[in-house]
Design a protein around this nucleic acid. Structure first.
Length: 183
DNA sequence: GGGACGATGTAT
DNA sequence: TACATCGTCCCT
């Protein structure tokens, strides 16, 4: 496969929706035991900050959400439902982009599935041990990939509690990918 | 100290 | 549609 050129942290230092769209087609890489596990990002969700009721930072600046208020280009990794990890790209000021699905590219089993935020992290071996790490260097980094020819948007998944914010079209995906988590 | 509640996935 | 399973938040 093509050389994995890390994206600079400045990639994430932009408007959160712009970053969520720009991340589609880029590659997420995690080095585990000397092996680079890589997947092409095909689905993301934008979480805009403290005013966005679906965003964790809307509950306040706490120990858990602190990394979202830090510099852009770092990883925010959290555990949901007591068993699944989810990984985000921090864009700053309490905002981040959730990575929801990847197409397996390298260093992974043939039957690997990356469709879904929990499956994605399990596949690449991402846990909270990586929370707060910069995303431009090993062991966890973003690399340049090929942008999709089109991008579709929908409401975010699993955030019904966020009332009006749940309806906003802040989920983005590559409609030509067979590895997207939902319709 | 304790209870409610998940940015999910899998089995029924 | 049930439920596994535990960190986080707030005391409703």
């Amino acid at each position: 496969m093509k050389r994995l050129t890390p994206l600079p942290r400045s990639f994430a230092a932009r408007d959160t929706v712009e970053v969520a769209r720009a991340l589609l087609g880029q590659v997420l890489v995690h080095e585990v035991g000397g092996v680079l596990r890589a997947g092409r990002i095909v689905e993301t969700e934008a979480y805009l900050g403290p005013h966005d009721l679906a965003c964790h930072s809307s509950k306040g600046r706490t120990a858990r959400t602190e990394v979202m208020f830090g510099p852009p280009g770092h990883a925010y990794v959290f555990l949901v439902y007591g068993m699944h990890h989810c990984v985000n790209v921090v864009t700053g000021n309490g905002a981040a982009v959730l990575l929801r699905a990847i197409e397996p590219l390298a260093g992974l089993p043939d039957d690997a599935r990356g469709d879904g935020p929990g499956r994605l992290t399990k596949l690449l071996g991402i846990t909270r041990a990586l929370d707060g790490l910069p995303l431009d260097a090993r062991p966890l980094f973003l690399a340049r990939g090929t942008r999709p020819t089109s991008v579709r948007a929908s409401a975010r998944i699993g955030v019904a509690y966020a009332k009006a914010w749940a309806k906003k079209p802040l989920r983005f995906f590559d409609p030509s990918s067979t590895h997207v988590s939902g319709p």
